[in-house]
Protein backbone atom coordinates (compact mmCIF):
# COMPACT_ATOMS: atom_id res chain seq x y z
CA UNK A 1 0.00 0.00 0.00
CA UNK A 2 2.74 2.43 1.02
CA UNK A 3 4.62 1.68 -2.19
CA UNK A 4 1.48 2.31 -4.21
CA UNK A 5 0.89 5.67 -2.51
CA UNK A 6 4.51 6.73 -2.91
CA UNK A 7 4.54 5.80 -6.57
CA UNK A 8 1.34 7.65 -7.26
CA UNK A 9 2.60 10.64 -5.29
CA UNK A 10 5.82 10.76 -7.30
CA UNK A 11 3.84 10.57 -10.52
CA UNK A 12 1.58 13.34 -9.25
CA UNK A 13 4.56 15.61 -8.58
CA UNK A 14 6.09 14.82 -11.95
CA UNK A 15 2.78 15.65 -13.63
CA UNK A 16 2.52 18.98 -11.84
CA UNK A 17 6.10 19.89 -12.66
CA UNK A 18 5.58 19.01 -16.29
CA UNK A 19 2.31 20.94 -16.37
CA UNK A 20 3.95 24.03 -14.86
CA UNK A 21 6.71 23.97 -17.46
CA UNK A 22 4.20 23.52 -20.28
CA UNK A 23 2.04 26.39 -19.05
CA UNK A 24 5.01 28.68 -18.57
CA UNK A 25 6.46 28.01 -22.01
CA UNK A 26 3.12 28.27 -23.81
CA UNK A 27 2.51 31.65 -22.23
CA UNK A 28 5.97 32.83 -23.24
CA UNK A 29 5.18 32.42 -26.94
CA UNK A 30 1.86 34.20 -26.60
CA UNK A 31 1.98 37.32 -28.77
CA UNK A 32 1.08 40.63 -27.13
CA UNK A 33 2.81 42.80 -24.55
CA UNK A 34 1.03 43.58 -21.25
CA UNK A 35 2.84 46.92 -20.97
CA UNK A 36 1.73 48.08 -24.43
CA UNK A 37 -1.79 46.94 -23.63
CA UNK A 38 -1.89 49.07 -20.49
CA UNK A 39 -0.53 52.23 -22.04
CA UNK A 40 -2.68 52.35 -25.16
CA UNK A 41 -2.50 54.33 -28.38
CA UNK A 42 -0.64 57.48 -27.39
CA UNK A 43 2.23 56.03 -25.35
CA UNK A 44 5.80 56.61 -26.45
CA UNK A 45 8.04 53.52 -26.87
CA UNK A 46 10.31 54.52 -23.99
CA UNK A 47 7.29 54.79 -21.68
CA UNK A 48 6.36 51.22 -22.58
CA UNK A 49 9.94 50.14 -21.93
CA UNK A 50 9.86 51.84 -18.52
CA UNK A 51 6.69 49.94 -17.62
CA UNK A 52 8.13 46.63 -18.80
CA UNK A 53 11.07 47.20 -16.51
CA UNK A 54 8.76 48.07 -13.62
CA UNK A 55 6.68 44.91 -14.17
CA UNK A 56 9.77 42.71 -14.11
CA UNK A 57 9.28 41.51 -17.67
CA UNK A 58 12.90 41.99 -18.58
CA UNK A 59 14.43 39.26 -16.35
CA UNK A 60 15.80 36.12 -18.08
CA UNK A 61 13.41 33.18 -18.68
CA UNK A 62 14.77 30.53 -16.27
CA UNK A 63 14.95 33.10 -13.50
CA UNK A 64 11.28 33.98 -13.98
CA UNK A 65 10.23 30.32 -14.19
CA UNK A 66 11.99 29.24 -11.03
CA UNK A 67 10.92 32.42 -9.27
CA UNK A 68 7.33 31.56 -10.08
CA UNK A 69 7.73 27.92 -8.91
CA UNK A 70 9.43 28.94 -5.68
CA UNK A 71 6.77 31.56 -5.01
CA UNK A 72 3.93 29.11 -5.59
CA UNK A 73 5.22 26.64 -3.01
CA UNK A 74 4.73 29.31 -0.35
CA UNK A 75 1.44 30.57 -1.79
CA UNK A 76 2.95 33.64 -3.47
CA UNK A 77 1.67 33.79 -7.05
CA UNK A 78 3.15 37.20 -7.88
CA UNK A 79 1.55 40.56 -8.56
CA UNK A 80 -1.01 40.93 -11.33
CA UNK A 81 0.33 43.12 -14.18
CA UNK A 82 -2.94 44.87 -14.79
CA UNK A 83 -4.73 44.94 -11.43
CA UNK A 84 -1.46 45.53 -9.49
CA UNK A 85 -2.61 43.43 -6.56
CA UNK A 86 -1.29 40.02 -5.44
CA UNK A 87 -2.63 37.24 -7.67
CA UNK A 88 -3.44 35.22 -4.54
CA UNK A 89 -5.88 37.98 -3.46
CA UNK A 90 -7.57 37.92 -6.87
CA UNK A 91 -7.84 34.14 -6.85
CA UNK A 92 -9.07 34.18 -3.27
CA UNK A 93 -11.91 36.53 -4.18
CA UNK A 94 -12.86 34.61 -7.32
CA UNK A 95 -12.81 31.23 -5.61
CA UNK A 96 -15.58 32.54 -3.36
CA UNK A 97 -17.78 32.69 -6.44
CA UNK A 98 -16.56 29.75 -8.50
CA UNK A 99 -16.46 27.07 -5.81
CA UNK A 100 -19.93 27.82 -4.40
CA UNK A 101 -21.29 28.05 -7.94
CA UNK A 102 -19.80 24.68 -8.90
CA UNK A 103 -21.05 23.16 -5.62
CA UNK A 104 -24.51 24.68 -6.09
CA UNK A 105 -24.73 23.38 -9.65
CA UNK A 106 -23.50 19.95 -8.63
CA UNK A 107 -26.00 19.78 -5.77
CA UNK A 108 -28.85 20.76 -8.06
CA UNK A 109 -27.75 18.30 -10.69
CA UNK A 110 -27.47 15.49 -8.12
CA UNK A 111 -30.84 16.30 -6.56
CA UNK A 112 -32.44 16.09 -9.99
CA UNK A 113 -30.43 13.23 -11.44
CA UNK A 114 -30.54 10.61 -8.68
CA UNK A 115 -34.32 10.42 -8.27
CA UNK A 116 -34.90 10.78 -12.01
CA UNK A 117 -32.37 8.06 -12.80
CA UNK A 118 -33.83 5.80 -10.10
CA UNK A 119 -37.38 6.31 -11.36
CA UNK A 120 -36.33 5.52 -14.90
CA UNK A 121 -34.54 2.37 -13.75
CA UNK A 122 -37.43 1.09 -11.68
CA UNK A 123 -39.83 1.80 -14.53
CA UNK A 124 -37.54 0.29 -17.12
CA UNK A 125 -38.95 -0.36 -20.56
CA UNK A 126 -42.14 1.56 -19.81
CA UNK A 127 -43.23 4.73 -21.60
CA UNK A 128 -42.16 6.67 -18.47
CA UNK A 129 -38.61 5.35 -18.83
CA UNK A 130 -38.61 6.17 -22.52
CA UNK A 131 -39.93 9.68 -21.80
CA UNK A 132 -37.30 10.35 -19.16
CA UNK A 133 -34.54 9.02 -21.38
CA UNK A 134 -35.77 11.24 -24.21
CA UNK A 135 -35.67 14.28 -21.93
CA UNK A 136 -32.15 13.48 -20.82
CA UNK A 137 -31.07 13.12 -24.45
CA UNK A 138 -32.37 16.62 -25.00
CA UNK A 139 -30.58 17.85 -21.86
CA UNK A 140 -27.26 16.42 -23.01
CA UNK A 141 -27.64 18.17 -26.37
CA UNK A 142 -28.39 21.57 -24.83
CA UNK A 143 -25.59 24.16 -25.17
CA UNK A 144 -25.51 25.62 -21.66
CA UNK A 145 -24.83 29.18 -22.83
CA UNK A 146 -27.92 29.14 -25.01
CA UNK A 147 -29.97 27.75 -22.17
CA UNK A 148 -28.56 30.48 -19.90
CA UNK A 149 -29.64 33.10 -22.44
CA UNK A 150 -33.19 31.77 -22.43
CA UNK A 151 -33.24 31.66 -18.61
CA UNK A 152 -32.23 35.32 -18.42
CA UNK A 153 -34.87 36.25 -20.96
CA UNK A 154 -37.64 34.50 -19.06
CA UNK A 155 -36.72 34.93 -15.40
CA UNK A 156 -34.81 38.24 -15.33
CA UNK A 157 -36.09 40.32 -18.22
CA UNK A 158 -39.59 38.86 -18.36
CA UNK A 159 -40.64 37.83 -14.88
CA UNK A 160 -37.98 39.80 -12.98
CA UNK A 161 -37.68 37.10 -10.34
CA UNK A 162 -33.89 37.08 -10.43
CA UNK A 163 -31.35 39.75 -11.23
CA UNK A 164 -29.78 39.34 -14.64
CA UNK A 165 -26.31 38.81 -13.24
CA UNK A 166 -23.58 40.21 -11.05
CA UNK A 167 -22.62 39.06 -7.60
CA UNK A 168 -23.40 41.05 -4.42
CA UNK A 169 -20.86 39.25 -2.20
CA UNK A 170 -21.40 36.98 0.76
CA UNK A 171 -22.35 39.73 3.25
CA UNK A 172 -25.93 38.78 2.55
CA UNK A 173 -25.88 35.00 1.97
CA UNK A 174 -29.49 35.02 0.77
CA UNK A 175 -28.80 37.58 -1.95
CA UNK A 176 -25.61 35.75 -2.91
CA UNK A 177 -27.41 32.44 -3.34
CA UNK A 178 -30.10 34.16 -5.33
CA UNK A 179 -27.54 35.66 -7.68
CA UNK A 180 -26.02 32.21 -8.21
CA UNK A 181 -29.32 30.46 -8.82
CA UNK A 182 -29.85 31.05 -12.55
CA UNK A 183 -26.19 30.36 -13.43
CA UNK A 184 -26.30 27.19 -11.32
CA UNK A 185 -29.46 26.02 -13.06
CA UNK A 186 -27.93 26.72 -16.48
CA UNK A 187 -24.86 24.69 -15.54
CA UNK A 188 -26.73 21.96 -13.70
CA UNK A 189 -29.34 20.85 -16.20
CA UNK A 190 -27.05 19.44 -18.91
CA UNK A 191 -24.94 17.82 -16.17
CA UNK A 192 -28.04 16.38 -14.53
CA UNK A 193 -29.05 14.78 -17.82
CA UNK A 194 -25.70 12.99 -18.02
CA UNK A 195 -25.79 12.01 -14.37
CA UNK A 196 -29.34 10.65 -14.57
CA UNK A 197 -28.33 8.39 -17.44
CA UNK A 198 -25.33 7.11 -15.50
CA UNK A 199 -27.52 6.57 -12.44
CA UNK A 200 -30.08 4.59 -14.41
CA UNK A 201 -27.62 2.31 -16.16
CA UNK A 202 -25.63 1.70 -13.01
CA UNK A 203 -28.80 0.81 -11.11
CA UNK A 204 -29.83 -1.60 -13.84
CA UNK A 205 -26.40 -3.22 -13.59
CA UNK A 206 -26.68 -3.82 -9.88
CA UNK A 207 -30.28 -4.98 -10.13
CA UNK A 208 -29.05 -7.98 -12.08
CA UNK A 209 -26.38 -8.88 -9.56
CA UNK A 210 -26.54 -12.10 -7.58
CA UNK A 211 -27.29 -10.52 -4.19
CA UNK A 212 -30.18 -8.58 -5.66
CA UNK A 213 -31.73 -11.76 -6.91
CA UNK A 214 -31.24 -13.20 -3.43
CA UNK A 215 -32.92 -10.15 -1.93
CA UNK A 216 -35.85 -10.54 -4.29
CA UNK A 217 -35.99 -14.24 -3.49
CA UNK A 218 -36.21 -13.39 0.20
CA UNK A 219 -39.48 -11.66 -0.61
CA UNK A 220 -38.47 -7.99 -0.90
CA UNK A 221 -40.40 -6.11 -3.55
CA UNK A 222 -38.51 -4.60 -6.49
CA UNK A 223 -38.80 -1.15 -4.92
CA UNK A 224 -37.63 -2.32 -1.49
CA UNK A 225 -34.71 -4.20 -2.97
CA UNK A 226 -33.83 -1.13 -4.96
CA UNK A 227 -33.85 1.17 -1.97
CA UNK A 228 -32.11 -1.18 0.49
CA UNK A 229 -29.40 -2.67 -1.63
CA UNK A 230 -29.05 -1.43 -5.17
CA UNK A 231 -28.97 2.31 -4.56
CA UNK A 232 -25.82 2.26 -2.46
CA UNK A 233 -23.88 0.09 -4.84
CA UNK A 234 -25.07 1.99 -7.85
CA UNK A 235 -23.80 5.26 -6.40
CA UNK A 236 -20.12 4.40 -6.89
CA UNK A 237 -19.98 5.13 -10.64
CA UNK A 238 -22.25 8.09 -10.04
CA UNK A 239 -19.78 9.51 -7.53
CA UNK A 240 -16.93 9.08 -10.00
CA UNK A 241 -18.81 11.08 -12.61
CA UNK A 242 -19.65 13.71 -9.99
CA UNK A 243 -15.96 14.10 -9.17
CA UNK A 244 -15.24 14.71 -12.84
CA UNK A 245 -18.14 17.12 -13.14
CA UNK A 246 -17.02 19.22 -10.19
CA UNK A 247 -13.67 19.97 -11.78
CA UNK A 248 -15.39 20.57 -15.09
CA UNK A 249 -17.78 23.03 -13.48
CA UNK A 250 -14.97 24.84 -11.71
CA UNK A 251 -13.16 25.74 -14.93
CA UNK A 252 -15.92 25.19 -17.45
CA UNK A 253 -18.18 27.95 -16.22
CA UNK A 254 -16.30 30.62 -18.23
CA UNK A 255 -19.08 31.19 -20.73
CA UNK A 256 -21.81 31.08 -18.09
CA UNK A 257 -19.84 33.54 -15.95
CA UNK A 258 -19.77 35.86 -18.95
CA UNK A 259 -23.49 35.59 -19.59
CA UNK A 260 -24.23 36.45 -15.95
CA UNK A 261 -21.20 38.77 -15.49
CA UNK A 262 -20.10 36.85 -12.42
CA UNK A 263 -16.63 37.58 -11.01
CA UNK A 264 -15.47 33.95 -11.05
CA UNK A 265 -12.21 32.17 -11.87
CA UNK A 266 -13.19 31.47 -15.47
CA UNK A 267 -13.89 35.09 -16.27
CA UNK A 268 -10.70 36.13 -14.47
CA UNK A 269 -8.62 33.89 -16.67
CA UNK A 270 -10.52 34.90 -19.83
CA UNK A 271 -9.96 38.60 -19.19
CA UNK A 272 -6.39 38.01 -18.10
CA UNK A 273 -5.64 36.28 -21.42
CA UNK A 274 -7.02 39.26 -23.37
CA UNK A 275 -5.04 41.69 -21.26
CA UNK A 276 -1.93 39.46 -21.45
CA UNK A 277 -1.83 39.40 -17.65
CA UNK A 278 0.28 36.27 -17.82
CA UNK A 279 1.03 36.13 -14.10
CA UNK A 280 -2.67 35.65 -13.48
CA UNK A 281 -3.24 33.24 -16.38
CA UNK A 282 -0.48 30.82 -15.49
CA UNK A 283 -1.31 30.77 -11.79
CA UNK A 284 -5.04 30.17 -12.30
CA UNK A 285 -4.44 27.47 -14.93
CA UNK A 286 -1.88 25.85 -12.65
CA UNK A 287 -4.31 25.96 -9.76
CA UNK A 288 -7.05 24.31 -11.81
CA UNK A 289 -4.66 21.60 -13.01
CA UNK A 290 -3.54 21.09 -9.42
CA UNK A 291 -7.15 20.71 -8.27
CA UNK A 292 -8.00 18.13 -10.95
CA UNK A 293 -4.80 16.10 -10.50
CA UNK A 294 -5.28 16.06 -6.74
CA UNK A 295 -8.92 15.01 -7.00
CA UNK A 296 -7.91 12.18 -9.35
CA UNK A 297 -5.22 11.11 -6.93
CA UNK A 298 -7.66 11.06 -4.03
CA UNK A 299 -10.19 9.08 -6.05
CA UNK A 300 -7.54 6.49 -7.01
CA UNK A 301 -6.41 6.35 -3.41
CA UNK A 302 -9.93 5.75 -2.11
CA UNK A 303 -10.51 3.03 -4.66
CA UNK A 304 -7.27 1.37 -3.70
CA UNK A 305 -8.37 1.38 -0.08
CA UNK A 306 -11.66 -0.26 -1.01
CA UNK A 307 -10.40 -2.66 -3.62
CA UNK A 308 -6.85 -4.00 -3.23
CA UNK A 309 -6.90 -5.40 -6.75
CA UNK A 310 -6.64 -1.87 -8.07
CA UNK A 311 -3.29 -1.30 -6.42
CA UNK A 312 -1.51 -2.88 -9.31
CA UNK A 313 -0.48 -0.28 -11.87
CA UNK A 314 -2.82 -1.64 -14.54
CA UNK A 315 -6.41 -0.95 -13.71
Amino acid sequence: MAVFVLKRLASLLASLLFASLAIFLVLEVLPGDPAAFMLGLNAAPDTVAALREQLGLTAPLPQRYFGWLAGMTVGDFGISYTYRVPVSDLIGARVQVSVPLAAYALTLSTLIAIPVGAIAASARNTPLDAGIMGMTQLGVALPNFWFAMLLVLVFSVGLRWFSAGGFPGWDDPFAAMRALTLPAVALALPQAAILARVMRSSLLDTLDQEYMRTARAKGLSQGQALRRHALRNALIPVLTIMGLQFSFLLAGAIIIENVFFLPGLGRLVFQAISARDLVVVRSVVMLLVFAVVTVNFLVDFTYALVDPRLRRPVS
Binding site: S15, G252, I254, F270, I273, V285, L288, V289
Partner: peptide, 25 residues
Protein backbone atom coordinates in the same frame (compact mmCIF):
# COMPACT_ATOMS: atom_id res chain seq x y z
CA UNK B 1 2.30 4.25 -17.30
CA UNK B 2 3.73 7.31 -19.04
CA UNK B 3 1.10 7.22 -21.80
CA UNK B 4 -1.74 6.86 -19.33
CA UNK B 5 -0.43 9.53 -16.94
CA UNK B 6 0.10 11.81 -19.94
CA UNK B 7 -3.53 11.24 -20.81
CA UNK B 8 -4.61 12.10 -17.29
CA UNK B 9 -2.53 15.25 -17.48
CA UNK B 10 -4.20 16.43 -20.69
CA UNK B 11 -7.57 15.76 -19.07
CA UNK B 12 -6.49 17.81 -16.07
CA UNK B 13 -6.10 20.96 -18.19
CA UNK B 14 -9.24 23.08 -18.40
CA UNK B 15 -10.24 22.49 -22.01
CA UNK B 16 -11.84 25.82 -22.78
CA UNK B 17 -8.96 27.79 -21.25
CA UNK B 18 -6.48 25.85 -23.37
CA UNK B 19 -8.62 26.42 -26.46
CA UNK B 20 -8.61 30.15 -25.73
CA UNK B 21 -4.83 30.08 -25.28
CA UNK B 22 -4.35 28.22 -28.56
CA UNK B 23 -6.41 30.77 -30.45
CA UNK B 24 -4.63 33.60 -28.62
CA UNK B 25 -1.36 32.24 -29.95
Amino acid sequence: EIVMRGNDLVFAFPALVIAILITAI
